[in-house]
Simulated assay, not measured.
Amino acid sequence: MDVVGIKRHFTTPEGTRIYDWETISVFEALKLAEPMLRCSECHGAVRLYRAAPDGSTASRAEHRKRNPGCSLDERFDGTKKMAELAIV
């Protein structure tokens, strides 16, 4: 998985501030101090991993709890469904 959902504050065109989800790359998420993250598809909790210094693995995100109903999970069973403990 190379994109994640992150919860951030936004200012609307009317000037009000809202707290909502945005999809960003794992590379950008790794730069943030303590982001609130979730899978951008199934809304399950994810963990970030940095690229190996030798280049053997790329930066990525993985589900904390496997979700066979998410097409971004390596064990996708072909039927999409939200995570059991979705982050809202």
Rank of each mutant, 00 (worst) to 15 (best):
residue 37 L to G: 01
residue 11 T to F: 02
residue 58 A to E: 14
residue 4 V to E: 05
residue 2 D to P: 01
residue 24 I to D: 00
residue 56 S to A: 14
residue 82 M to F: 11
residue 29 A to E: 02
residue 20 D to I: 05
residue 34 E to N: 15
residue 24 I to H: 01
residue 74 E to M: 05
residue 9 H to C: 08
residue 66 R to E: 13
residue 45 A to P: 02
residue 29 A to W: 01
residue 88 V to W: 14
residue 42 C to P: 00
residue 72 L to G: 08
residue 18 I to G: 07
residue 52 A to K: 10
residue 63 H to I: 02
residue 23 T to W: 06
residue 20 D to F: 05
residue 23 T to S: 06
residue 49 Y to Q: 10
residue 29 A to S: 06
residue 16 T to Y: 10
residue 5 G to A: 13
residue 30 L to G: 02
residue 82 M to G: 06
residue 68 P to G: 07
residue 88 V to K: 15
residue 20 D to Q: 10
residue 21 W to H: 05
residue 5 G to M: 03
residue 52 A to W: 05
residue 43 H to K: 05
residue 82 M to I: 14
residue 81 K to P: 08
residue 80 K to P: 04
residue 73 D to C: 12
residue 52 A to C: 05
residue 46 V to P: 00
residue 15 G to V: 07
residue 7 K to R: 15
residue 11 T to I: 09
residue 33 A to D: 15
residue 54 D to V: 11
residue 41 E to G: 09
residue 10 F to H: 14
residue 17 R to Y: 05
residue 9 H to S: 08
residue 53 P to W: 04
residue 82 M to N: 11
residue 17 R to M: 14
residue 18 I to M: 11
residue 88 V to Q: 11
residue 68 P to H: 09
residue 43 H to C: 06
residue 36 M to N: 08
residue 86 A to S: 13
residue 84 E to W: 10
residue 37 L to I: 04
residue 45 A to K: 03
residue 5 G to H: 00
residue 78 G to Y: 07
residue 2 D to L: 13
residue 57 T to S: 13
residue 17 R to Q: 15
residue 67 N to D: 03
residue 33 A to Y: 08
residue 15 G to T: 09
residue 37 L to A: 04
residue 24 I to S: 02
residue 80 K to A: 15
residue 23 T to H: 05
residue 4 V to M: 07
residue 83 A to H: 01
residue 9 H to M: 09
residue 18 I to L: 12
residue 43 H to G: 00
residue 85 L to P: 03
residue 74 E to L: 10
residue 34 E to L: 11
residue 46 V to C: 06
residue 11 T to R: 13
residue 46 V to L: 07
residue 8 R to F: 03
residue 88 V to T: 13
residue 18 I to R: 14
residue 65 K to H: 12
residue 61 A to S: 11
residue 20 D to K: 09
residue 10 F to T: 08
residue 39 C to Q: 02
residue 80 K to C: 11
residue 8 R to S: 06
residue 64 R to Q: 08
residue 52 A to S: 15
residue 60 R to M: 03
residue 48 L to S: 02
residue 80 K to G: 11
residue 68 P to R: 13
residue 37 L to S: 01
residue 75 R to E: 09
residue 32 L to N: 04
residue 77 D to G: 01
residue 88 V to R: 14
residue 27 F to W: 09
residue 72 L to D: 09
residue 55 G to Y: 12
residue 42 C to W: 01
residue 71 S to Y: 15
residue 8 R to L: 12
residue 71 S to V: 14
residue 40 S to M: 04
residue 40 S to I: 04
residue 16 T to G: 09
residue 75 R to H: 09
residue 2 D to K: 15
residue 32 L to I: 14
residue 54 D to R: 05
residue 35 P to E: 07
residue 17 R to W: 05
residue 2 D to C: 04
residue 61 A to I: 04
residue 18 I to H: 10
residue 66 R to V: 14
residue 71 S to M: 14
residue 62 E to T: 02
residue 73 D to G: 04
residue 5 G to W: 00
residue 80 K to Y: 15
residue 88 V to C: 11
residue 44 G to L: 00
residue 25 S to E: 06
residue 84 E to N: 12
residue 38 R to F: 00
residue 50 R to A: 15
residue 36 M to L: 15
residue 63 H to R: 02
residue 61 A to M: 08
residue 44 G to R: 00
residue 45 A to G: 07
residue 21 W to G: 03
residue 39 C to S: 01
residue 39 C to I: 02
residue 6 I to F: 03
residue 83 A to C: 07
residue 78 G to V: 07
residue 35 P to G: 03
residue 30 L to R: 01
residue 39 C to N: 02
residue 35 P to H: 02
residue 72 L to H: 11
